[in-house]
Design a binder for these strands. Structure first.
Length: 858
RNA sequence: GCGGGUGUGAUGGAAUGGUAGACAUACCGGACUUAAAAUCCGUUGGGGCUGAGCCCCGUGUGGGUUCGAGUCCCACCACCCGCACCA
C-alpha cells in the first residue's frame, strides 16, 4: 500500500489551484461578496508559527465562504516601512529598501507552501511608491479638509546621539545605544485631528456587534469620555498673566478636601517660573528626564516642587493652598493642572504624605474623624456617606450622583462649569526617520508650509545620497543630511525652499491598506466602484495587541476617507467583524550556568521522558518553562518550514487549529504535531481502503453512519462559523473513528469519507482535494458546495436525562425525547436511587428541563 | 501606576446556568511481531466503602446569587496583553 506523502500531494494541488486561478477575486454583482483579511505582516524575513496560525484561520474562513457560494476576496500584503530595516542597515550596512524587498521575497517563498487561498495578484507593499504615493495624496486631501495640523509635542531625545528615539529605543530611561539619560523635548510635528471624532468613535462602538466585547471596552476606555468640573483657582503671588489656574476634575465632590494644586512641568506657568528661577529650572529639567510613555510617568517616583505661589479655595477664600509643579501631571490631559485631594485619591495621598500636606476628608466611613485616615479612603460606589465639612451641609450618594450634584452645586455658586472631556489625544504622525512615507509638504520662507502638488506625487524617497550610499551609521535622519533631496522650489512661488524631512508613522500605512486591496494598482487611492463592492472587510483577524491603536486609527482613517470622498458614505466602520487570535508558544528548556544565569537549549537537544526533560548530550535534567512566547534569544522558536518539510502544510495547519481555542495561546509541541500527522495519515489510509472496497459491497449500520455524518456536518459548520475550530476538529476526530469502525456498505462509506474530506477541506485543503479526486468527486473540492446537515437526522428518539437530588446527580433515565414533563417527573420520582436518597422525605419541588435534566429539591 | 484579559486532570483543552474532564497528548496495560518501530484495542481527577455498585471531595483563593455555578456577581492572588514613536 502506498503512503500518505504530503510533499507530493501539496505541490500537485497548489499547482492545480494556481492553474485554475480559483482564488482570483473579480467583482461580480451577481454573487454575495465576502472580504476576509488577516492583519498584514511586517517583512522581518522569516515567517513564524504566529503567522501560520493567523493566516490559517483566515484561510479556513475564506475557503468555507467559497464553499458556501461567496465571491471571496482574500489578499496579502506587507507592512513594509519601519525601524527594523534602518536598524539592519545600521548594524550591517546595506539599504533598508534592499533589505525589505529581499525579506518580502523570502517570506512570500515561505508562505506559498502553506497553500493559502490568497489572491496574490493584489499583493502590495507599503514601501512601494505605488502605495505610499497614494497615501501622500490622501494626506493632501486630509490637509485640505482640515483633518491635519501642526503643533508642538514632546519626543524622547537622546542628548548624546542628538537624535529622537522611539519608545522602544528607551531602556530604563536611557538611550539604547548611547546609554544616556533620555530627555523629553518639544518638536513641531504633524497631527491628525482624531480627537474631533472622539464622541463618534466612542458611540459607533455600539454598532460593532461582531467585535469582541473586550476590544470595544478597551477602545472606550482609551477614548475616555468623562464628565467633570472645570474651574479656576485664583492665585496669590503669581506672575502676571497667571492670576488664575484653570483646573479640570472628575471628582468635584471632593473639592472641599483639596489641599494642594499641582501643575504639569509643561504648564505655561511652570515655563514662566522656569525662566525666572534656577531652582525651578533645575527641577523641571529633572522632570524632563526619562521617556515619554505614560507607563514611565505613572510608575515613576512622584516628585513635586513647591513654587511658593498659593491659591485660594473657591468656597473658602481664607483657605490658601500651595501650588506644586509635579512630574506626574500630563499637560495633554485636561488643563495640565489638578487639585489634590489626598483623602480620597491614593496618588494624591502618597504625594501629600511625602510633602507634609494636610489630608482633609470630605467622605468619611461611618463616624470616623479625619485624623483617623491613614490611607486614602475611596468609598464604595454604593455606600451612603456623609460630608463632615460638606457643601453647605449637602449629603449625597457616592458615585455619579455625587459628581452630578457637585457640578450642579458649583455651577449654582458660580464656581466653574460642568464639561465633558476625552482622554484621546490627537495622533502625532511625524517621525524623524528615513524609512517611511515622506510627508508631501515644502517649507517656504515666504509662503510657509506649502502642500506638494498632486501631479508631483509620489514624493519618492531618495535611494542614495547623491553619488554615495545613504549612511545609516550616523545617528539622525539621513533625509536631513541629503545634499539635494531637501532643496526644491516652493510649489506656490517657485523660490528655493526645503522639503519636509519627517516621514509618516507606520500606523498611517496600515490604516487604509484594507481599502487599497480593493484596487491595488489604481491611479487614485481608491476606486469608488471597487470599494463600494468589496468594503467593508467582513472578517478581520489579528492579534489582541492591536486592540487599541491600529484598530482605532483605522476607524478614524475610514471616517477621514469618507469625508474626503475616498470611501462611500456610511462605510466608516471598516471591519464588520473582528477576531483576535492568541499566540503560538513553546516551552523553554533551560539549565543554570555557573554564574546563575540560564543557558537555553533548543528542543532538538532535549529528550522528554516521564514528563521530565533531559539533555541528550549528557542526560542531565533540564528545567522546563511551559508555554512561553517564541523568542530567538530563548532558543524556543519552531520554524514552520521545518514542520512543513517533515509533515506537510496540512499537518501544520491542522495542529495550530486543533489544540487550543483560537483566541487563546496555543503551545506548539512535537507530540501534538506528530498526532496531527498521524490523524491525516489515518484519514488518507481510510480513503484508500474505501476506494479499494468492492463498489457494490453492502454492509450494516448505514443508517447510524449517516446520522453520525449529519451531526458532524452540523457541528463542524457551527464550529467554523463561530471560530470554534478546536471543537470542530474534535468532532472530526470522533467522526473519523466512527467511520473507521463502520461496517456500512461501500456507497455509504464513500459518501462519508467524501463528506469528511469536505468538512476538513478548510483546514487541510490539499489532503481533502486528494481524497475527493481519489473518490471520483466532481471538479475541485475547493469549488464543491458545502454539505448541508439534514435536520431530520439530527434528533434522537430517546435522550438520557440525569436526575439530580438537591443539585447532586443520583441517577439517570433513558426516556423518549418527546415525553411530557409530568411523565418524566413521575419516572424520576419513582427511580430507586431517588427514593433511596429522599429516604421517605417528600420532595418540595421538581424541576424538569426537557431533554436536559431533572432536579428534585428535597 | 492605569486599562483589558486569562486561570479546569500529569499536559493542551471540552462543557446555550443543567451528568465537569469531549477530543488530543502523556503514562500504564493488552493485541500484532523473533524483537523493535509502526498500527490497533483498553485503563487513567483525588479519596473512601466488607469493592463490579455506592458515598465524599474536586474547575486559582475567599465570599455571594440560584432548584442547580467552570459558566453570573464581589474581593483577592498569579500570569498575559496594551499604555499613544515596536509592528
Amino acid at each position: 500500500m502506498s503512503k500518505y506523502s504530503p510533499a507530493e500531494i501539496e505541490a500537485r494541488w497548489q499547482a492545480a489551484w494556481a492553474e485554475t486561478e480559483v482564488f482570483k477575486a473579480v467583482r461580480d454583482l451577481n454573487r454575495p461578496k465576502y472580504y476576509v483579511l488577516e492583519m498584514f505582516p511586517y517583512p522581518s524575513g522569516r515567517i513564524h508559527m504566529g503567522h501560520v496560525r493567523n493566516y490559517t484561520m483566515g484561510d479556513v474562513i475564506a475557503r468555507y465562504k467559497i464553499a458556501t457560494g461567496h465571491n471571496v476576496l482574500h489578499p496579502m500584503g506587507w507592512d513594509a516601512f519601519g525601524m527594523p530595516a534602518e536598524n539592519a542597515a545600521m548594524a550591517s550596512g546595506g539599504h533598508p529598501a534592499d533589505w525589505t524587498y529581499a525579506n518580502i521575497a523570502e517570506m512570500k517563498k515561505q508562505m506559498k507552501p502553506l497553500g493559502l487561498s490568497i489572491d496574490w495578484s493584489r499583493e502590495l507593499a507599503t514601501c512601494h511608491p505605488g502605495y505610499y504615493g497614494q497615501q501622500q495624496a490622501l494626506f493632501l486631501d486630509f490637509l485640505e479638509a482640515g483633518l491635519v495640523y501642526r503643533k508642538n509635542a514632546v519626543v524622547n531625545w537622546d542628548p548624546v546621539d542628538m537624535t529622537v528615539l522611539a519608545n522602544e529605543q528607551v531602556e530604563q530611561g536611557r538611550g539604547w545605544r548611547s546609554g544616556a539619560l533620555v530627555e523629553r523635548r518639544e518638536l513641531t510635528q504633524w497631527f491628525f485631528k482624531i480627537s474631533d471624532h472622539s464622541e463618534e468613535l466612542l458611540e459607533a462602538l455600539d454598532s460593532l456587534d461582531n467585535w469582541p466585547a473586550k476590544v470595544k471596552l478597551m477602545q472606550a476606555n482609551w477614548i475616555g469620555k468623562s464628565r467633570g468640573l472645570q474651574f479656576a483657582f485664583s492665585t496669590v503671588d503669581a506672575p502676571d498673566g497667571h492670576e488664575a489656574i484653570e483646573v479640570y476634575t472628575t471628582r468635584p465632590d471632593t473639592l472641599l478636601g483639596a489641599s494642594f494644586v499641582g501643575i504639569s512641568p509643561d504648564h505655561p506657568l511652570a515655563k514662566v517660573l522656569e525662566r525666572q528661577d534656577e531652582d525651578v529650572a533645575a527641577f523641571v529639567a529633572e522632570c524632563r528626564k526619562g521617556g515619554t510613555t505614560e507607563e514611565a510617568i505613572e510608575t515613576g517616583e512622584k516628585l513635586g516642587y513647591d513654587t511658593g505661589i498659593r491659591v485660594r479655595h473657591p468656597f473658602d477664600t481664607a483657605h490658601e493652598m500651595p501650588v506644586y509643579i509635579a512630574n506626574f501631571i500630563l499637560m495633554d490631559y485636561g488643563t495640565g493642572a489638578i487639585f489634590g485631594c489626598p483623602a480620597h485619591d491614593e496618588r494624591d495621598f502618597e504625594f501629600a504624605t511625602r510633602y507634609g500636606l494636610p489630608i482633609i476628608s470630605t467622605y468619611l466611613p461611618d463616624e470616623e474623624s479625619p485624623e483617623a485616615l491613614d490611607e486614602a479612603y475611596v468609598p464604595p460606589k454604593t455606600e451612603r456617606v456623609f460630608y463632615n465639612r460638606g457643601f453647605a451641609g449637602e449629603q449625597w450618594q457616592t458615585g455619579n450622583e455625587a459628581i452630578d450634584a457637585a457640578i450642579a452645586f458649583c455651577e449654582a455658586n458660580g464656581v466653574g462649569q460642568g464639561v465633558t472631556k476625552f482622554r484621546l489625544r490627537d495622533w502625532g504622525l511625524s517621525r524623524q526617520r528615513y524609512w517611511g512615507c515622506p510627508i508631501p509638504v515644502v517649507h517656504c520662507e515666504d509662503c510657509g508650509v506649502v502642500p506638494e502638488k498632486k501631479e508631483n506625487l509620489p514624493v519618492e524617497l531618495p535611494y542614495d545620497n547623491g553619488n554615495a550610499a545613504i549612511d545609516f551609521s550616523v545617528p539622525g535622519n539621513p533625509l536631513e543630511r541629503h545634499p539635494t533631496w531637501r532643496d526644491v522650489p516652493c510649489p506656490a512661488c517657485g523660490k528655493p525652499a526645503k522639503r519636509e524631512t519627517d516621514t509618516m508613522d507606520t500606523f498611517v500605512d496600515s490604516s487604509w491598506y484594507y481599502a487599497r486591496f480593493t484596487a491595488p494598482r489604481a491611479e487614485t487611492p481608491t476606486v469608488m466602484e471597487d470599494v463600494s463592492y468589496w468594503m467593508n472587510v467582513d472578517q478581520y483577524i489579528g492579534g489582541i495587541e492591536h486592540a487599541i491603536l491600529h484598530l482605532l486609527y483605522s476607524r478614524f482613517f475610514a471616517r477621514a476617507m469618507e469625508i474626503t470622498g475616498h470611501l462611500p458614505k456610511s462605510a466608516h466602520e471598516p471591519f464588520d467583524a473582528l477576531f483576535t487570535q492568541g499566540m503560538v508558544t513553546h516551552a523553554i528548556y533551560q539549565t543554570a550556568r555557573q554564574d546563575g544565569r540560564p543557558t537555553y537549549h533548543y528542543p532538538e537537544e532535549v529528550e522528554l521522558r516521564d514528563g521530565k526533560a533531559f539533555l541528550k548530550e549528557d542526560g542531565s535534567e533540564v528545567e522546563v518553562i511551559p508555554s512561553a512566547k517564541m523568542s530567538k534569544s530563548k532558543n524556543n522558536v519552531v520554524d514552520p518550514l521545518n514542520i512543513i518539510e517533515s509533515y506537510g502544510a496540512d499537518t501544520a495547519r491542522w495542529f495550530v487549529l486543533s489544540d487550543s481555542p483560537p483566541e487563546r495561546d496555543v503551545e506548539w509541541t512535537a507530540s501534538g504535531a506528530e498526532a496531527a500527522f498521524k490523524h491525516l495519515t489515518r484519514v488518507w489510509k481510510l480513503s484508500t481502503r474505501i476506494k479499494t472496497m468492492s463498489a457494490d459491497a453492502e454492509g450494516s449500520g448505514d443508517e447510524e453512519l449517516l446520522k453520525s455524518m449529519h451531526k458532524t456536518i452540523h457541528d463542524v459548520t457551527m464550529g467554523v462559523e463561530s471560530f470554534g475550530f478546536n471543537a470542530a476538529i474534535a468532532k472530526l476526530y470522533a467522526f473519523t473513528a466512527t467511520l473507521q469502525k463502520s461496517k456500512a456498505g461501500h456507497a455509504a462509506q464513500r459518501e462519508a469519507v467524501m463528506t469528511l474530506a469536505q468538512l476538513m477541506s478548510p483546514m487541510t485543503p490539499h489532503l481533502s482535494e486528494d481524497i475527493w479526486a481519489a473518490q471520483g468527486g466532481e471538479g475541485l473540492i475547493v469549488n464543491a458546495p458545502w454539505p448541508k446537515a439534514d435536520e431530520a437526522l439530527l434528533v434522537d428518539d430517546t435522550v438520557t436525562m440525569p436526575i439530580q437530588v438537591n443539585g447532586k446527580r443520583r441517577a439517570e433515565i433513558e426516556v423518549a425525547a418527546d415525553l411530557s414533563k409530568e411523565e418524566v417527573e413521575k419516572l424520576a420520582l419513582a427511580h430507586e436511587a431517588v427514593v433511596r436518597t429522599l429516604a421517605g422525605a417528600a420532595p418540595k419541588k421538581v424541576i424538569v428541563v426537557p431533554g436536559r435534566i431533572v432536579n428534585v429539591v428535597a
